[in-house]
Measured scan of single mutants.
Amino acid sequence: MTYRVRIENADGEVVTIEISADELREKGLTLEELLPPNARIVEVEEVEP
């Protein structure tokens, strides 16, 4: 499974990243732990691999 994640950074700019569930598991991280300081998740969407 892959996630498309929209993130708002500290400057108010919204960027989109895609990350797979396998990648998260391998790194032992959650989506929140990948965020840079002062950023927030705006939207998470599951996409087909």
Rank of each mutant, 00 (worst) to 15 (best):
A10R: 06
M1T: 13
I7E: 00
L31E: 00
D11Y: 11
E45Y: 11
V15N: 05
A21D: 06
G12L: 02
T16Y: 12
R4P: 05
V42R: 04
E45I: 15
E43C: 14
L35K: 02
E46H: 08
T2K: 15
Y3S: 03
V5M: 04
I7Q: 00
D22E: 12
E33Y: 04
N38Y: 13
A10C: 12
T30E: 04
L35W: 03
L31Y: 02
L24F: 04
E43V: 07
V44D: 01
P49C: 12
Y3P: 09
D22G: 08
G28D: 05
E43G: 13
E43L: 14
T30I: 05
A21N: 05
P49R: 13
E23Y: 14
S20W: 05
V42T: 03
K27G: 06
E48L: 14
E33H: 07
P49V: 14
E46V: 15
T30N: 06
E13W: 08
V5Q: 00
E43D: 14
E32Q: 12
T16Q: 06
N9S: 10
P37I: 08
R6V: 14
M1D: 05
L31H: 00
E18R: 05
I19E: 00
T30W: 03
V44A: 02
N9C: 15
V15T: 09
E48R: 14
A10V: 10
E26F: 10
V14W: 09
I41M: 04
V5N: 00
E48C: 12
E23F: 14
S20R: 09
G28Q: 06
E13T: 15
L34T: 04
N38G: 15
R25E: 07
L29G: 04
T2L: 15
M1K: 15
L29V: 11
T30D: 04
T2S: 12
A21C: 07
T16P: 01
S20K: 08
I19S: 00
I17E: 00
E43K: 10
R6K: 15
G12S: 02
R25I: 11
S20T: 12
R40P: 01
V15P: 00
E32I: 12
E43N: 12
R40M: 06
V44L: 08
I17P: 00
A10L: 10
T30C: 08
T2A: 09
I17T: 01
K27C: 09
R6S: 13
G28R: 06
K27I: 05
P37E: 08
S20C: 04
E18D: 07
E46S: 10
Y3I: 15
P49D: 11
E18C: 14
